[in-house]
Amino acid sequence: MATNERFLSGFQVNRSLLAGGAVLTGIGALLGAAGAVMVCAALATAGRTWVRGLDTPPTELAQRALREAKVASAAGWEAWRTEHHSPN
């Protein structure tokens, strides 16, 4: 009974079993974190390779989309002003 502690009238905790479980849980957490890092590195590498292989860089696509949105917004504003006979 030296490895067991008594708490609250009969509740017994086996310390060696508890410590072993805590150690295994810690090892499992470290392995899980290492696996997650490896997955993220693989995905980042694949993403970089994919972006390098694109014909048009993503920044150029974003700039083009922004210009098109501005033109569409101006056209919509102009159509609204024409429809409502507004000077603004």
Rank of each mutant, 00 (worst) to 15 (best):
A2M: 06
A2T: 05
T3Y: 12
T3D: 15
N4D: 14
E5L: 14
E5S: 07
R6E: 09
R6V: 07
R6L: 09
F7A: 07
L8W: 01
L8P: 00
S9W: 06
G10P: 01
F11N: 10
V13I: 15
N14M: 03
N14K: 12
R15V: 05
R15Q: 08
S16Y: 03
L17V: 13
L18F: 13
A19Q: 06
A19G: 00
A19N: 08
A19M: 05
G21P: 04
G21H: 02
A22G: 01
A22T: 12
L24R: 15
L24G: 00
T25V: 07
T25G: 03
T25S: 12
G26W: 02
I27Y: 03
I27E: 10
I27D: 02
I27M: 10
G28T: 07
L30A: 15
L30H: 06
L30E: 06
L30Y: 08
L31Y: 11
L31W: 07
L31D: 01
L31I: 13
G32H: 03
G32P: 03
A33Y: 13
A33T: 13
A33I: 15
G35I: 02
G35Y: 06
V37L: 13
V37I: 14
M38V: 15
V39M: 09
A41E: 10
A42L: 08
A42T: 09
L43H: 08
L43E: 10
A44W: 10
T45A: 14
T45L: 10
T45W: 04
A46H: 05
A46W: 05
G47C: 07
G47Q: 14
R48G: 15
R48Y: 06
T49A: 15
R52N: 11
R52E: 12
G53W: 03
L54M: 15
L54H: 11
D55W: 05
D55V: 11
D55K: 12
T56H: 02
P57K: 02
P57N: 01
T59W: 04
T59I: 12
T59A: 15
E60W: 01
E60N: 10
L61S: 08
L61H: 04
L61D: 04
A62Q: 14
Q63A: 15
Q63T: 09
Q63C: 01
R64K: 15
R64H: 07
A65F: 03
L66E: 14
L66M: 10
L66I: 12
R67C: 00
R67G: 00
A69R: 11
K70D: 08
V71Y: 01
V71S: 07
A72Y: 01
S73A: 13
S73M: 08
A74P: 01
A75M: 07
A75G: 02
G76H: 04
G76D: 08
E78V: 05
A79G: 02
A79C: 01
A79E: 09
W80Q: 01
R81C: 09
T82V: 09
T82E: 12
T82S: 13
E83I: 01
H84R: 10
H84W: 11
H85P: 00
H85R: 13
H85E: 09
S86M: 05
S86F: 06
S86W: 10
P87E: 05
P87C: 04
P87N: 04
P87Q: 04
N88F: 15
